[in-house]
Design a protein around this nucleic acid. Structure first.
Lengths: 225, 225
DNA sequence: ACCTGAACACCGTTCAAGT
DNA sequence: ACCTGAACACCGTTCAAGT
């Protein structure tokens, strides 16, 4: 899979998988998943749509490569020497913020687990659980639980971003308010809990709630030891 | 939105949203998400593809309605009077098993949260946390954490099922074995944790690991009180 | 009110032909 | 080796026309 460096000088703007992936990320960030088509990508790269297939197998590989790129950037930014609990929080927050900035990543992570992108995250979390002294038996389950949670929140965040784009709700609080309104309107007998937390839904901060979940799971891991 | 009962007798096989959704579920279960097209659906219902639009707004509503149907069936099966901790486990397992039987549901739940389907699950979990005595402040965060975890695992399960279908791996253990092999082949310096748990990956049971995660989160909820 | 099915505006992907 | 762009086989969705 490793591509040889080209023998002859290439035009500065020659195609390459790297350039294609970067252009794809720009389109995805600017206009969302539906905007990424091979025709749009070819136009942006000033080439034919078929040329892209010389460097990338298909659209799936393109999306996977773009996701790996974003997640790799996140993991590069994690300082390695910090206290394990703080490191796990930092990794989780890094993924959360990356999905916040690139919502399409959230959808992609749920679609394609066990890719390089997620292996980096899984290794980062699992390694810290080891140094934290989590018993052998529990390490795998604990790391999987944290990863699944991070992916789950990421997918929901991606969905929120998609909805905010589709309807032209500019801000997040308007969206939360709408959901809260809908919960308040549910039947009192069928949905007492949702009616009860509707007010909290309206005012809560997604990022803080995400962290609260990470802490909850970490508390569970500590309790099991 | 409530449709009036028809004044005149209808042909027994007349179209209706219910019949369309049932046919969609059959196609999704039999041949996966890519097989659900309006043409295939129209053929199965012996009608024109445009007719479906009289009963359903678009493909998104069709998928959402199919998902609501499956999740509603699950929630109907939950016995209401059991001990709250057991009830939460039962709800989580119910969703897990439903996604196992209908992998497309897992993908859909990550794509469209806050639909009737998920509200039922969220209410079921949150209500039990209330009766469990989880403090006011923590109920919303705890229920959200559990829901996000369930959705995250569901999305991954859906991805596994998709991969098993695409390549013709019949059984799950073959898939786990392949992942384990890939983990074992990673660099010892970069991925010590993944190499360490590769053997557990090969032999683990997805369902048991899912339950272990639920228990971990429940332990964290208990620890916080 | 409900259904038909051709037509429209797109897709991802392929491939003969070029350089 | 790499690129071009027309062509193919599909999609979701619309809509004039039927009953």
């Amino acid at each position: 899979m490793k591509t040889e460096p080209p023998r002859t000088e290439r035009r500065a703007d020659a195609l390459s998988k790297q350039r294609i992936v970067e252009a794809a990320i720009e389109i995805l960030d600017a206009d969302g998943e539906t905007a990424l088509t091979f025709r749009a990508l070819a136009a942006r790269l000033a080439t034919g749509s078929g040329a892209i297939y010389w460097h990338v197998a298909d659209k799936g590989e393109l999306l996977a490569a773009a996701t790996d790129e974003i997640v790799a950037r996140v993991m590069t930014g994690i300082v390695p020497e910090v206290e394990p609990r703080a490191a796990i929080r930092a990794i989780a927050l890094g993924v959360f913020d990356a999905i916040d900035a690139h919502p399409w990543v959230g959808a992609q992570l749920t679609r394609e687990p066990w890719r390089p992108a997620l292996l980096l995250v899984f290794e980062g979390i699992g390694g810290r659980l080891q140094t934290l002294g989590v018993p052998e038996r529990a390490q795998f389950d604990a790391a999987s639980t944290l990863l699944s949670y991070v992916i789950g929140v990421g997918g929901q965040n991606a969905a929120h971003a998609r909805m905010a784009r589709d309807e032209e709700r500019t801000d997040r609080s308007a969206f939360l308010g709408e959901v809260a309104d809908r919960w308040s309107a549910l039947s009192a007998s069928g949905y007492p809990f949702l009616r009860h937390v509707a007010a909290q839904m309206r005012d809560h901060d997604d990022r803080e709630q995400f962290l609260a979940g990470v802490d909850l799971i970490m508390a569970g891991i500590a309790a099991i030891q």
